[in-house]
């Protein structure tokens, strides 16, 4: 051991364990070889996929873009958006009610709410849609009246529960079950002191919920709700099973006539992608709005500064490499 110590020189950093302290003071050598190799492989695969997208005639891009801008798909898209908005609205209202019910001191109400969440979350939404579609098979007539007593009027279930309403019920109630969990988590995230302070000021329970607790819970509720909305936009495509002409079913109607199956599916997919992208952007701005008060201007700019520093560092590194 002492041999190596004398052999490696007379530096003050030397020790007799054979480790070169002088070398350790420098930064480790960067190995970029593997990085470049992986990047090259990935880029080559991307090139192959792109090449086939352009050269494979079966994609029929002309047909894709022709139908992408067609009125039929656009009408379908509008119905999809309508379904998404209404189902989400139903889902959020049902979700808030179920969440409040689950947090209620009355254990029967809390139990019933938990049971409903269990049902609507546990049965696949596709199956639920089928049930609502076939509701007339269970209850052929829907009536208004006194239970076990006189009936005021009744209607054919098939007239009331149209495919559209069946879709709203199926999607909205399933969504409500998921939203209730999201809302509940949001409500529970608000510090107890907030409720106490509001109570001490003489506020009623509804005011406390609406003005104090819910706005703060929003910070927790918004991000997953954005995800749910994006997910809902896509889930509406299941409604095609009820023969309701939303975006996917509109595309299906076209390709069942002209057999341009793949181009029409691509055209529909492009619309789904476009709208989900817009929704993601909207979510960003809504989240920023509900972060007010907690993310102070100082903290925001610090994060932005960090992001800018990271950005300039990477671009600088690229410049050095090129």
């Amino acid at each position: 051991m002492s041999d190596t110590a004398t052999a490696s020189g007379a530096s003050a950093l030397d020790s007799d364990d054979g480790i070169d302290r002088q070398l350790l003071l420098g930064r480790p050598h960067q190995h970029h070889g593997l990085l470049w190799l992986t990047a090259a492989i990935v880029l080559f695969v991307i090139f192959l996929v792109g090449y086939s997208l352009v050269t494979n005639p079966r994609f029929e891009w002309g047909v894709v873009f022709g139908w992408f801008t067609s009125e039929r798909l656009f009408t379908g898209l509008l119905r999809t958006l309508q379904l998404t908005v209404i189902s989400m609205a139903v889902g959020i209202i049902v979700g808030v009610l179920l969440a409040l019910a689950r947090l209620a001191p009355n254990f029967i109400i809390a139990g019933v709410a938990a049971f409903l969440v269990w049902i609507f979350r546990g049965v696949p939404v596709f199956v639920q849609l089928l049930f609502w579609g076939f509701i007339a098979a269970i209850y052929p007539r829907l009536a208004v009246g006194v239970p076990f007593g006189p009936e005021f009027f009744s209607v054919d279930a098939n007239v009331i529960i149209t495919p559209f309403l069946a879709a709203i019920l199926g999607l909205g109630l399933n969504e409500g079950a998921y939203m209730s969990e999201i809302v509940r988590a949001g409500l529970l995230s608000v510090h107890r002191g907030q409720t106490e302070a509001a109570k001490a000021l003489g506020m009623r329970r509804v005011t406390i919920l609406w003005r104090i607790v819910l706005p703060q819970a929003m910070k927790i509720i918004i991000p997953p709700t954005g995800n749910q909305t994006i997910s809902m936009l896509k889930t509406t495509s299941l409604v095609s099973v009820l023969a309701f002409p939303e975006l996917l079913y509109s595309a299906q109607l076209v390709y069942s006539a002209n057999f341009k199956t793949i181009p029409l599916l691509i055209a529909a997919s492009l619309w789904y992608l476009l709208v989900t992208s817009i929704l993601s952007l909207g979510q960003f701005y809504i989240e920023r709005h509900f972060n007010r008060g907690t993310a102070t201007p100082g903290r925001m700019s610090r994060r932005r500064r960090k992001a800018r520093a990271l950005w300039s560092r990477t671009t600088a590194a690229q410049e050095v490499q090129s």
Binding site: G193, Q194, E196, A197, A200, P215, Q216, G293, T294
Partner: peptide
């Protein structure tokens, strides 16, 4: 009856 808490409990939003 006004009350002031140890943890302030101001409404942050």
């Amino acid at each position: 009856i006004g009350m002031v808490f140890q943890g302030f409990n101001l409404f942050p939003h």
